[in-house]
């Protein structure tokens, strides 16, 4: 296969190694404005170098863009990556166009302009931080767009849903396009639906893209309901000791 890598950013260096591993015999072409950077990057996988502006048609011709199977726009400018991807798709009809966005807010623009796949390497940063700090909140995990799934995670803590069973959660999700699985604090899959959740266990909700939030909302209302009932029981107990 013929692969074109545009740019020589930090991420381009990782991307080119992935390409080489996935296709050991493929031709890899690096396009960059800097001769030195392009040569160093290409040399790491025995690739070819084209130096120049990646939006210039003369450079496209030199790189034989019309024959490429894959292009990865991986410079450190999202604007450039989006533009190159648009040209690759609309002018040269390259079958696989991958755009790297450094700023996750540019993902939609990249998709709209014709990229087949958009990768935002910094996206997991936010969800990871939230997952570490907010133990009592649902965290939406970032998955590549093409998987088409929503993945929500919740770490059980004392104040929330101790004692609730997986079957209660699954029952609550009946009629929703979502499924719940549980993992113990030590990372084992919870197979027994009647297992009562303990501190440190993790609930995972898997749903088709766009449907996860509704399922999570449903679980939130279940938790609120159970907490209300527990509070009522607690207050009755204090009235009638």
């Amino acid at each position: 296969m013929r692969h074109i890598i545009v740019g020589s950013s930090h991420y381009a260096q990782l991307a080119i190694l992935a390409v080489r591993e996935a296709d050991p015999a493929g031709l890899v072409i690096v396009i960059d404005r800097s001769t030195e950077a392009a040569e160093r990057l290409a040399a790491s996988v025995g690739g070819k170098v084209i130096v120049g502006d990646p939006t210039d048609p003369r450079i496209h011709e030199a790189a034989e863009m019309d024959k490429a199977d894959v292009i990865i726009a991986a410079s450190d400018s999202d604007a450039l990556n989006i533009k190159v991807a648009e040209i690759a798709k609309k002018t040269y009809r390259i079958p696989i166009v991958i755009t790297l966005v450094n700023n996750p807010l540019n993902q939609d623009e990249a998709m709209t302009r014709g990229s087949d796949y958009v990768i935002s390497p910094s996206s997991p940063l936010q969800s990871h931080i939230k997952a570490i700090i907010s133990t009592d909140k649902w965290v939406k995990a970032t998955t590549p767009e093409f998987f088409g799934i929503d993945l929500y995670l919740y770490r059980v803590v004392k104040s929330s849903i101790l004692g609730i069973t997986l079957s209660q959660i699954r029952e609550e999700l009946r009629g929703y396009e979502a499924y719940a699985i549980g993992l113990t604090k030590t990372g084992s899959l919870i197979r027994d639906p009647s297992y009562e959740l303990r501190e440190g266990d993790v609930i995972v909700i898997v749903a088709p893209r766009g449907m996860g939030e509704a399922a999570v909302e449903k679980i939130r209302s279940l938790i609120a309901r159970i907490q209300r009932i527990r509070a009522e029981m607690e207050s009755r107990r204090s009235v009638y000791p």
């Binding site: 400018s77 999202d78 989006i82 700023n103 540019n106």
Partner: peptide, 21 residues
């Protein structure tokens, strides 16, 4: 277009992004 790298001041990053876009 959102600035590619949110480094402050990033004036040149923004100017370059604008030019490419």
């Amino acid at each position: 277009i959102y600035q590619s790298i949110l480094r402050y001041p990033g004036k040149g990053i923004a100017m370059r992004d604008g030019y490419y876009f």
